[in-house]
């Protein structure tokens, strides 16, 4: 565990010292909320009962999920970079559990994802989203975000362990990322979708993190969430399974790359 913490701290220190990365990490979620949330809100809001602010509130969990998956993708490319530059050899020769090498990366990805989620929530409040003031709601929400980020980070890490080409990695992961966002209830309620899309959305972990976040984080979140008829407990179960699946994929791909 201490090795994972060491690697986590190394990644965090590197990110903090990298001004460009820091700027992007902090500005990107703000842009999403302001440009997408507010923009779409003024476009779609009037058609929703309750108007513009409702759409921003509805959208915020989706933006968090999107940002989390973006962070996971970045975590995967950090890993691929370390493999390509031979940095991983230093870890492999050290007396540390193999899994802690992956954990260090996953932990830093989750930390950054949580920081970004908090920024999104705060900016969301500023632009008028109705976020709960219940600390338990925030805690539960962050747990869901952490689980979702870990699961997605696992997928990204497994892909980054299976290729030696940055371009290939990015095109593969984009292929996954797009349906993960659009084939979910992040942007529009399930009931507005055609059946095939709804089926897709129901096997998509994004749907569960988004629904769960609506329950936990939004003022009157249950009102938003229940239109999709997914209970809260199912969100936590689904995200737990997704986390486990992602971690399993990552560790088996990593072990294979050591052969």
């Amino acid at each position: 565990m201490s090795a994972a913490v060491t690697l986590w701290s190394k990644h965090m220190v590197k990110s903090i010292h990298n001004q460009m990365e820091m700027t992007g990490m902090l500005i990107q979620p703000i842009l999403w909320v302001v440009l997408f949330g507010v923009g779409m809100g003024s476009l779609l809001g009037p058609s929703m009962p309750g108007g513009e602010d409702i759409y921003i509130t509805f959208m915020l969990p989706g933006i968090i999920a999107l940002t989390a998956s973006g962070g996971a993708i970045a975590g995967g490319s950090t890993w691929l970079n370390e493999r390509l530059q031979g940095i991983v050899k230093e870890y492999l020769a050290a007396p540390i559990p193999r899994l802690s090498i992956l954990m260090g990366n996953a932990l830093s990805t989750v930390s950054k994802g949580l920081i970004q989620s908090l920024i999104i929530l705060i900016v969301g409040i500023i632009v008028g989203a109705n976020i709960t003031s219940n600390p338990l709601g925030w805690m539960g929400g962050l747990v869901l975000v952490a689980g979702f980020t870990l699961g997605f980070a696992g997928i990204a890490l497994s892909m980054a362990s299976s290729t030696d080409n940055m371009g290939a990695y990015h095109s593969m992961i984009m292929l996954l990322n797009l349906p993960l966002l659009f084939l979910s209830n992040a942007l529009y309620p399930l009931e507005t979708m055609p059946t095939w899309m709804r089926i897709g959305a129901l096997i998509n972990p994004t749907t569960y993190v988004v629904t769960g976040l609506r329950y936990m984080l939004l003022e009157n979140g249950a009102e938003f969430a229940k239109v999709d008829t997914i209970p809260l407990w199912l969100c936590f179960v689904a995200i737990t399974i997704f986390t486990a699946l992602g971690m399993w994929l990552a560790s088996s791909a990593f072990k294979k790359s050591l052969k």
């Binding site: 190394k10 590197k14 010292h17 990298n18 370390e82 530059q85 031979g86 940095i87 991983v88 050899k89 230093e90």
Partner: peptide, 10 residues
Amino acid sequence: FQETTLDKEL
């Protein structure tokens, strides 16, 4: 190692 394994951002 023969080839560098240094993390050049550090």
